[in-house]
Amino acid sequence: MAKFKGAIVVDTEKCKGCGLCVVSCPTAVIELARGVNGKGYHYAHMANPDACIGCSSCGLVCPDTVITVYRAKAS
């Protein structure tokens, strides 16, 4: 059981679907959506939210800075 629970918020309209967050995530939380945003990009989203530990890796590597990361102590 992880010590921390995390969550991310993606600005899906600004996301370009590059997928760098997907490969950066150590707990395989993020996937690209099947749907697309207004620009036609498959945006990133939390496909497996329970696994998120709020490590910020996705936010750090995101070239468009569209990911905000939250982290709380696991209850």
Partner: peptide, 23 residues
Amino acid sequence: VYKKTDVLLDNEMHYCPGCTHGV
């Protein structure tokens, strides 16, 4: 724990998806 700094403007970057410039 992580959010966009205010020094970075809200303008959408013209760079291609995945471009290192953004980082």
